[in-house]
Design a protein around this nucleic acid. Structure first.
Length: 591
RNA sequence: GGUCCGGUAGCUCAGUUGGAUAGAGCAUCAGCCUUCUAAGCUGAGGGUCAUUGGUUCGAAUCCAAUCCGGAUCACCA
């Protein structure tokens, strides 16, 4: 329970005693006091004026009087300015907070609550390597899972691999046509990149063939259907569905290359999964759903045999759920999988980390689940995030502007190396230490960069300006942590020393900030928003840095002051480490 | 066209259950390393919170209209 909540409770108490009616926390507002005014927390009095028929100053005086008189151990004074009641919180409260929590590495986290959540994220296609957009997805998913764990949920991370379908056949056809049997080994290329090359080659060749046909006088729409490479791809998809051995063999071989490549990338960026689903195994799940839907009268069958759901009454469209040839479409498979997840893990909530271009799809998914009265329907939640765009607009593979995930990682680590060398810090470390330090800093910078903005909003990434290492960044926070650790290696904390009662402004500011960590973790989970953590962790580091520049810990004014500051530093380092962990980011002991 | 999302400093973003003079970072400028790591600290300049109207003690925040940008509306996934 934070001082803010305590103050709310005490205010309700005091108001009740003063005016002999009951009040709730909605009757007034409590904020942190603005720095230009005296006090720590502020009660806004205007909303009470009407119902009490008293002036703001009169209410403020009576309330301030009552609060300080009845809770001297909490509130030591007050002032009223233009309808705002500013209260000063007793130093003892802050010192007590420090004593109790400075060494608790679990500070801010909740005990297990018995609820289970699944977070589905990453979910790649096996026809091309991961790019910057996937990185945002991966970091978000991992971080949200961690934030939920910190709030007491049991979390399962899952991934659905889109490993079948026409787009997969495209790279297979192109490989057959152009690769001459090239393999990752023979070309020294990462498997996912190799397969991605042939996906690009498919599109080039396809475009060429369409143009050829158009030049011969074929209408463009017709040419797109008739292009031989497209016909061959469609044939391959049919062969795949029929289980034709040579197609299956090629499919397994090429997917195997991609998985090897993904494994490397996932390991690099720290993504992991408790359960991986493969669409090649789940794409038939929808059939049962369709049968159920028809039986319940939620779906209708058209004359040609295709099955539909009418969502026009819900403001949406009529959606197909099964093709006339009896195969299921994407949405139906997803419903089947949603059901399977629920049955397998008995989850209370199912979170899908998917880009906002699928908002409509996910809305339909949830709506159909509701109409089918599936038990998990209301637990489906789409964590929708915006695209990562370039200053010139969307990334386009056609124009070669796609920022590759592996390249990005390498570049960040290289930048970390360059910065460290420029600062002349290299001599303090062994080669092995440097390797892991560059990785920690580079990945920290990148993850922080992609997580510090609200997931809902699209974000712009400028490849010209490399990701910053100063200011509101991961390395800034890491650096603050490393400096604290450096002090803690030199100075010993002594047990049993009586704390000094006085608190300097900056010392108190640190404590006020640290106290908010539990509610920040709560808010981040409620909003499923890691940027809340990023903003907070940065704020903590900033406040500590201001203190650090102003006051010395090792050479404090007195021994008791030194011990107090050591405890403060320890608590700050714990919160920084904990918060950065929620963002999937490590903190270095030295940098 | 329907639906949804967004528009805050030169740039990238916070702030939106209505509260005091709208905040950070980057960039620009001026300072601070013989004292715990300067990847740091202190300060300055920089704003019609897209526009207009409304609601009220009070609006970046709520409502309405308009303008601009984006996503989506496949027998693709």
């Amino acid at each position: 329970m934070s001082i803010l909540h305590i103050l709310q409770g005490k205010t309700i108490e005091s108001l009740g005693a003063l005016y002999e009616r009951s009040f709730t926390e909605n009757d007034f507002q409590v904020n942190q006091t603005k720095p230009e005014f005296e006090g720590d927390y502020t009660i806004v009095l205007f909303s009470l004026v009407k119902s009490l028929k008293l002036s703001p100053d009169a209410i403020g005086n009576q309330l301030g009087e009552h609060l300080t008189k009845n809770n001297p151990e909490l509130f030591t004074g007050f002032n009223i300015i233009k309808g705002f009641l500013n209260l000063a919180v007793a130093n003892e409260y802050w010192l007590d907070l420090l004593q109790k929590n400075y060494n608790d590495i679990c500070f801010g986290k909740q005990a297990m609550n018995g609820k289970k959540v699944m977070v589905e994220y990453s979910s790649p296609n096996t026809n091309k390597p991961l790019h910057l957009g996937h990185l945002r997805n991966n970091f978000l998913g991992w971080s949200v899972a961690e934030i939920l764990k910190a709030n007491g949920y049991e979390v399962f991370k899952s991934c659905i691999v889109n490993d079948r379908g026409i787009h997969i056949c495209k790279s297979m056809i192109a490989w057959k046509m152009f690769a001459n049997g090239a393999t990752p080994q023979s070309t020294h290329t990462k498997g996912d990149h190799l397969v991605g090359e042939y996906y690009v080659k498919f599109n080039d060749e396809y475009k060429r063939q369409v143009k050829e046909l158009v030049d011969k006088g074929v209408v463009e729409a017709e040419a797109e259907k008739q292009a031989p490479i497209m016909l061959a791809t469609q044939q391959m998809l049919q062969d795949w569905e029929a289980g034709k051995p040579e197609v299956m063999e090629l499919w397994k071989k090429m997917n195997g290359w991609v998985y090897q490549g993904f494994d490397v990338t996932y390991k690099n960026i720290g993504s992991d999964f408790d359960k991986t689903y493969y669409e090649s195994n789940t794409y038939l799940l929808g059939r049962k759903t369709v049968e159920e839907g028809l039986a319940k009268g939620v779906f209708v069958k058209d004359a040609d045999g295709s099955v539909w759901i009418d969502l026009t009454n819900d403001g949406l469209d009529r959606k197909i759920v099964q093709r006339k040839d009896g195969t299921s479409v994407y949405i139906t498979q997803d419903i089947g999988l949603a059901q399977q997840k629920y049955e397998e893990y008995k989850i209370n909530q199912s979170i899908y980390v998917i880009g906002d271009e699928q908002n409509y799809h996910m809305k339909v998914l949830k709506l159909i689940a509701e109409k089918l009265k599936l038990p998990n329907a209301e637990n489906i939640y789409h964590l929708s995030y915006g695209m990562v765009e370039l200053p010139s607009g969307k990334m386009k593979s056609r124009e070669g502007t796609v920022v590759d995930a592996d390249d990005m990682v390498d570049e960040m680590i290289a930048t970390a190396k360059q910065h460290t060398e420029e600062l002349g810090k290299v001599k303090d470390f062994t080669a092995a230490e440097l390797g892991s330090l560059y990785r920690t800093i580079g990945m920290g910078a990148m993850k922080f960069y992609l997580l510090r903005v609200d997931p809902k909003k699209k974000m712009i990434f400028n490849p010209e300006e490399s990701i910053d290492f100063h200011g509101f960044t991961g390395p800034f926070v890491q650096y603050t942590y490393a400096r604290i650790k450096s002090i803690l290696r030199k100075e010993q904390l002594k047990e049993g020393i009586t704390m000094e009662a006085g608190l300097l402004k900056l010392e108190k500011e640190i404590l006020v900030t640290l106290e908010q960590y539990p509610s920040i973790i709560l808010q981040a989970a409620k909003e499923l928003n890691p940027s809340v953590i990023a903003n907070y962790v940065f704020h903590v580091a900033k406040v500590f840095n201001s203190f650090y520049a102003e006051h010395s810990i090792a050479n404090a004014e007195s021994e008791t002051k030194k011990q107090l500051r050591l405890q403060l530093a320890i608590m700050v380092s714990n919160v920084l480490k904990s918060g950065m962990h929620l963002l999937g980011t490590e903190v270095p002991e030295r940098m």
